[in-house]
């Protein structure tokens, strides 16, 4: 695609701008900011990727993945402000998920250990792990608050913090995993996944595109389960103190 063709795609930005103006939606500013940010961010990433792919040096791969984890941690921790040390817990979760998935992929020779594979797959894994963390933390914070009487009940009967929070923890883990599982049930029926569409448009064999998409989807199942469970078990102890009391909020 030439830059001229690319600039023609701005028509698709113009349409919502005109609609927003006409119907007084007040979304012009946000739409413009979103457009400009996505242009700058994606172009920057594109050039960085080009550079990293050409150098194919492990150090640059490592730096890219680290950057992704830092950005994802920064985004996700906002939802868990009530949990002490949430930054470290989210970061640890993302690092663990990334190391686990890449070890399996590279260890079993599923994908080659090159920037071309590691970086996009890491991006998808870390991005999804971030979304899962946010879903989990939102739900867990809400569950703990709504069911505080259940927690107090179990503590008052001589239960441990783990027993007192067990139900809320399991509920939150399940709830945060459900969208990932559900979306995989209808995949291909309603819409083609973005990555697969991209590959097909770029000229890849559809069957090969499907194979990669399956790989990614299975990977995301692991990502979802490991993220929610790990973050859950790292988070709940900070809600209690040594005397097995709910911390003052």
């Amino acid at each position: 695609m030439s830059y001229f063709t690319l600039s023609l795609t701005l028509i698709f930005v113009l349409i919502p701008l005109v609609l927003s103006k006409t119907f007084n939606l007040g979304l012009e500013r946000d739409t413009l900011v979103a457009t400009i940010r996505s242009i700058i961010q994606l172009l920057a990433v594109g050039y960085v990727l080009k550079f990293v792919f050409e150098s194919d040096s492990l150090i640059y791969i490592f730096l890219m993945v680290t950057l992704m984890i830092v950005a994802a941690t920064h985004n996700a921790q906002k939802k868990g402000a009530a949990i002490r040390g949430i930054v470290a817990k989210v970061a640890a979760t993302l690092v663990f998920v990334e190391v686990l998935t890449q070890s399996i992929l590279i260890g079993f020779n599923i994908t080659p250990p090159t920037a071309q594979y590691i970086i996009p797959i890491s991006g998808m894994v870390i991005g999804n792990s971030m979304v899962l963390s946010i879903l989990f933390l939102n739900r867990f914070t809400a569950e703990v608050e709504t069911h505080q009487d259940q927690t107090e009940l179990i503590l008052s009967l001589g239960g441990t913090p783990k027993q007192a929070i067990h139900r809320q923890l399991i509920q939150s883990i399940k709830a945060s995993m459900i969208p990932t599982i559900e979306s995989q049930k209808t995949v291909g029926l309603v819409q083609l996944p973005g990555m697969m569409s991209g590959q097909i448009i770029a000229g890849a064999d559809p069957i090969q595109a499907v194979q990669f998409q399956l790989l990614i989807m299975f990977l995301l199942l692991t990502t979802a389960a490991v993220t929610s469970i790990l973050l859950g078990f790292l988070s709940y102890p900070t809600l209690f103190n040594k005397r097995m009391q709910l911390m003052k909020s």
């Binding site: 009487d149 259940q150 503590l155 008052s156 009967l157 001589g158 005397r243």
Partner: peptide, 23 residues
């Protein structure tokens, strides 16, 4: 009170909460 293990303390001193929460 701090010399009594929390679990032991709560069995020794039982409480029926105002809202009578049920599992």
């Amino acid at each position: 009170i701090d010399n009594i293990e929390p679990v032991e303390l709560r069995r020794l001193v039982g409480m029926a909460l105002q809202s009578a929460p049920m599992i």
